[in-house]
Structures are given as C-alpha cells and as structure tokens.
Design a binder for these strands. Structure first.
Lengths: 279, 279
DNA sequence: CTTGACTCTATACTTAGTATAAGGTTTATA
DNA sequence: TATAAACCTTATACTAAGTATAGAGTCAAG
C-alpha cells in the first residue's frame, strides 16, 4: 500500500496543498497517517473518494462547514435533499440571469443610441416599438421641485424595487411621464416615474404599455428640470409648427447614465418623446 | 441645502453605514463635508448618483477596486465595454447552469432509483431509454486490478474533464463498459470508463450512444471488483437460464454515491446492465 | 554528503463587508 | 439645564475558502 505525500495527493486531485492542509485542520479530511516526528501528512489513494464527495457537495453550493456536519453525521439522505434544494436555487438563478441579460442588452442598445444619437437639441421623428413600463407614483409634482427632490424620489423607487424583489438592473433605465390630458392643458406636471421592463415581466400592478408608433424626439445631455423645460418647449413648438397631432403621453427617458461626475451630480443622456400623428 | 448623516444616507440607499465608511476610506465615495472636530461625515443627497453608479457597476460584476479606477479615470466608455463583456459572461453562465441543472435532475432520479430499487442481488428486466456517454480509455484492464488502480483512473478521468472544461458535475455518474465481443468470449475485461452526458452535449470525440432497449439488471451496494464479478456471474447465469440473447455491451453504472465512509472507502450503489433480446 | 525538491508551521492577505467595543456627539425630552 | 436615547467615531476581530510567503526542517538521488 503506497502512501501519498500531500503534494502528490494535491496534484492527483487538482487541488492546492494548502487546501488539503485546511481540510485536515477542519477535520474534513484527515490524512491516513501523520508522522509524529516530522508532522508529514500521508494520504491513502482511497481517500480520494471522500475528496470527490467534498468537491461534489461544494459544487452543489454547500459550505465546508455544512459538508463537515453532514459527513460527520453519516447522513445518507443529505445529498438527495441538497440536490432538490439546489435544483430550485438554480431555477431561480437562471431566471434572474435571464432577466439581467435582457436588461443588459437594453443597456447596450441604449449606449449605442447615445453614441450614434442625432444632434443634441434637434427634433427628430422616430418609429419606436411597443414598450412596457412599471409606474411608480410619488407624492409630489416633480416639475415643481429641483434635483434634490428627484433624488429623494429615486431613493423611494429604489426601496420599492428592493421591497418587491424586482431586479435592480431595471433601475438604470428610468423615466418620467406627463399624461396627455395634462399636456393638452399646456402644463408640465407629473408625479409619476417609471422603469422600462421586459415583455414577460409578471406583475399585475402598475404595469402599463406604451404603444408602438411615431414619436417626435429630442435628445440632450445632463439634466435639470430647467433644461428639460427648455427642450420640451422646442419639441412642442416643432409639433405645433408642423401641425402634428399629439396622440399620447409625454415621456422623458434616461437613455444612459454616464460615470462622470461634476460636483457629484448625475450626468444623464435624455430623450424626450411625444407620440404624434402626421396630419 | 440639508446634509445627510451617514445613518440617513445609509438608510436612504439600503446600504450599511460600514459600507459607506469603507467607500470613504477607499476614496470611492467621499462625504461632501467632514466635520474636522468630530470626524462626522455629512453627505449631499446628490451623491446618491455616484452611489447608484457604484452599485450598478457592482451588479455588473466589477470589484470595488475596478470601479474606483474607472470612476477616477472619468472613463465614459467603461460601461459600454463592461456591459458587452458582462453579456458574454452571463451567456456562459446560463449555459453552465443549465448543464448543471440537467446533471442535478439526473442525480435526483438516480437517488430516487436507489431509494426505490429492486431487491439487491435479484435480477430484474428493465426497459431503459437511449443514453449518451463520454468514453475515456485508460491504460489498464480495470478488472485485473484492485480499487487503488480504479481510484487512480478516476483521477485521470477527472483531470481529463477539467482539461476539456467539461462540467465537473458529470463526474458523479460514471460507469465502466465491457464490449460485447469480449463478453461473448466469456471474459470480464475493460479499459474504458465513461460519464453519462446530456443529449445536447457537444463534443465530437469519444461520445457514444447506448441504444434504448430491454436490459437484464442487477443492483448491489458498495463496491469491489470481487463483488462485481460475483453479481455479473449471477446476471449472466440468469440470462443463460432464460435463453436471452445478449445484444450489446455490458454496463456497470454507479447509480449513486453515498456520503458514508468505512475506512475512507467509496460507498457506491451499482447497477449492472446487459442489453438482451427475449427469445 | 550535498543538492534540490519537498514539507512543516505560522502569519499576512484577499473581498466586501459585518459585528462589536469603547468612547465622543447630537438631539429630544423632562 | 440635565440627562437619556439615539447617533457617530475609530479600531479591532471576524467571515469563507483559500493564496502567498517566510523560515525552518525532511527526504531522495547522485
């Protein structure tokens, strides 16, 4: 019966010597024989079985502590149970990753749009697809306040997302909405902000559809409500001049946020959009 | 302009105070103002923008160090690049998780089979579906050696798996195969072990199909080649007695491995199976 | 007998924080 | 104005699963 030194055991199992020493110290895998004089560890090849079981359980997401407990308890049914639990976890994980993936794809599209956007401050007519949004009503009219209030509202929205276990990645693509009737009255007023969400998003409450259609759009950098009012003015004036008919709600979309900060302030790339009918 | 204490800033952003102190120390997010007398940190609500960006980048899988570097460099294109990189990573991740999920489902089935298996040592006739295996040839005839050699071979296989970047989870469902011609000569000899793999497994080399069909099976616990020979004898004798015709390779499948160790040895639940035709 | 490869223990370090202690500050209440 | 509650400070230890390193001892081959 040949004994394996720690180095050979490690190489054989594609694991580090330190890891084996750690397992020894934890009592997870004691060497078959330890030389009392030198402290040298010697392993039996058959101990690979236990090492396999350890890495299998590790792969299933158990901590070394948990693994030790179960192996100590000689618990036959552990694996079956862990497998079942793990299956559920992985299902959830896959679902979350897919959601995240979609949000990332949308983000990528948005950054491309930013890079290839029409000239800032110039009105463009665009065909936009149907989009789904998740609305959140806040206590104040955001156009009556300044950026501080907007930040507070975003915090509210973020807490709301967290509370409802929505993917945080949605948070990077927000917007605000002015309802058509309010706009028709010539007012800029809103107490609604929203997130763009996926088509297959499941939630009964607060989900709304922005229909596909023709939109008059205008792009600008950075943000203040003063600036938004200015560009909204240009956009509305253009619509009036061209005799377009407004057929839906006004949308202010944060297309992308830039990781550049002046005085710690948000640096956003905005697209205002109003659905129209060409008469 | 109201200033936020660390506690308020933390609560507003669903983050711990310690995390904020850490970000301060790292230079990732310095408070707007620090009282020199008391050391109290005071944040501006607008700084939430930077905190949002930090958590967004964190969500995208960047370390705090990386985030700091990019924010310090005022790097506009980071996000676009990180997003693209992240998309690829997530794709891979999803693929791996799906593979793992399948292996887990198979493991669960196997454990159920173990729990509800026919009496040990009794021959049963079973219809088995088509299965795909990934064969690995080893240098020796495994039936001429003892368990030590088998363990060494498993190590070889494991390294092979790692090298070819196959999911390690396959490793929990292995087997060995005795080719029909060898069996027909009345010999128990093999230098092939294999892994059961998924239907959609992509690899041109070494992949083989075990056709669906009727199998004579026998189950037993634990393992030694001596024991396998004994049960193989019972199985073959049964086949001869009943005048069945052997129509394919002999399979020794490790249905499940139990996390119970005597003298550090592997404790396996085995199913021997020989494809037959009822005459 | 020496050299090189190997092993030992002990300690520090990693990440992104959490937990806690001991002490100072602010704010609300009595 | 006194005091208590709530809050803030720094410093240290801890988490998980190791990795990296130093300094000293051991083994095997030539």
């Amino acid at each position: 019966m040949d004994m394996l030194t720690i180095g050979k055991m490690a190489k054989l199992n594609n694991i580090s010597e330190q890891a084996l020493r750690l397992y020894d110290k934890m009592g997870l895998l004691k060497p078959d024989y330890v030389d009392k004089q030198t402290g040298y560890r010697y392993y039996n090849i058959k101990q690979c079985a236990r090492l396999d079981m350890i890495s299998y359980m590790k792969e299933l997401g158990m901590s070394l502590k948990q693994i030790k407990e179960h192996l100590d308890r000689q618990d036959v049914d552990v694996i079956h149970e862990v497998l079942k639990r793990q299956k559920i976890l992985i299902d959830e994980n896959i679902k979350k990753l897919k959601q995240k993936q979609k949000a990332i794809v949308r983000s990528i599209e948005n950054y491309s749009r930013y890079a290839a956007s029409p000239r800032k401050g110039v009105v463009s007519i665009e065909q936009l697809p149907q989009r789904k949004i998740y609305c959140y009503s806040c206590s104040i009219n955001i156009y009556e306040h300044e950026l501080d209030a907007y930040e507070y509202m975003l915090r509210e929205l973020k807490s709301h997302i967290l509370l409802h276990d929505l993917p945080m990645i949605y948070f990077c693509n927000v917007g605000s909405i002015i309802r058509k009737d309010v706009l028709d009255e010539g007012r800029l007023a809103s107490n609604e902000i929203f997130l763009f969400i996926d088509d297959d998003f499941e939630a009964s409450n607060g989900v709304e559809v922005i229909p596909a259609g023709t939109f008059a759009c205008i792009y600008f950098d950075s943000f203040s409500f003063y600036k938004e009012k200015k560009y909204a003015g240009i956009l509305l004036e253009h619509i009036k001049q061209n005799n377009y008919r407004i057929v839906g709600d006004y949308i202010c979309e944060v297309v992308a946020e830039l990781p550049i900060f002046k005085q710690n302030e948000r640096n956003m790339f905005i697209r205002l959009q109003i659905p129209i009918e060409l008469c």
